[in-house]
Simulated scan of single mutants.
Amino acid sequence: MVGINRRSRYIAHAILILGILVVAFPIFYTFVASTQSLQTILRPPLPLLPGDRFWDNYTTAIFGGIGRIGGVGVDTLLFNTTVVALGIAIGKIVISILSAFAIVFFRFPFRMFFFWAIFITLMLPVEVRIMPTYKVMVDLGLIDTYTGLTLPLMASATATLLFRQFFLTIPGELVEAARVDGAGPWRFFKDILLPLSRTNIAALFVIMFIYGWTQYLWPLLVTNRNDMNTIVIALRKMVSFADADTEWHLVMVTCMLAIAPPVLVVLLMQRWFVRGLVETEK
């Protein structure tokens, strides 16, 4: 029995290591390409070891600017994308937790109607909503602005539903105890609900940050200036149909820099993220 368990453990670890290699090899290959010269990349096969152009390539991409996107540096692209990702993540959480708080703990006319109106928006395809939303952004003069990039993507029916379901598990005795203690709605929300919701907030923040970081269609519509592009849009612009016209070494640098922030967020918030997804006892 011990031998069988040990063999099963070895097989499981071997499969896990194989899966990690399959996932990690393209990322490693991209990193290797980001340290090579353009001539080396265009002349296959590409070496499997990093080259000697790491500092030159990364310095050029970050501070020198990239010709195909109007000489904008990756530092500007990273700043734009960070603003968009943080704005969407924080905005979604704030709007969703406040709307769920109002729906669960307040009694007002058409309360469930408003909840189902929010929920039904999940059934509307993005293509149905995107043109009217774009028209509103144009009328308000929000094209090529951070507000135009983030505001239409802040509302989230999914996050509202998740917070509502969690708030419904709050014991009624806790609400009554807070009321007897003289806690008003804002104090109850700030001192009781927010601390209890921190793991849910952390999990949603990670998901929404990655959602905002990888946005393509909406930033493509509402940005015309190169210096307002997100890093995903810039990557598409950097790639030409002809290999000789594409600065592949800078493309690979941009890819590596685009991967780093979401990975860093996941690593830093991994414990809270997992707890927020699997924790059942509050």
Rank of each mutant, 00 (worst) to 15 (best):
I11N: 06
H13T: 11
L16Y: 10
L21Y: 11
V22D: 01
F25K: 05
F28M: 12
R43I: 10
P44I: 09
R53V: 02
N57G: 01
I62Y: 13
R68E: 14
R68L: 13
G71M: 05
V74Q: 05
V74R: 09
L78T: 02
V83L: 15
G91R: 11
G91N: 02
I93T: 03
A100Q: 04
F105M: 09
F106Q: 09
F110N: 08
F115H: 02
F119H: 12
L122V: 02
L124I: 14
P125I: 06
R129C: 04
K135Q: 14
V136Y: 08
T147H: 10
G148I: 03
L149W: 08
A159C: 12
L162Q: 11
L162T: 04
E176F: 02
A177I: 03
G182Q: 10
R187D: 07
F189L: 07
D191C: 02
L193D: 06
P195K: 11
P195A: 03
A203D: 07
V206P: 00
I210R: 04
Q215A: 08
P219V: 01
N224Q: 15
R225E: 11
M228F: 12
N229F: 13
L235I: 08
A242V: 10
H249A: 13
M252H: 14
V253P: 00
T254V: 03
M256T: 11
P262H: 07
V265R: 04
V266W: 09
W272K: 14
K282A: 12
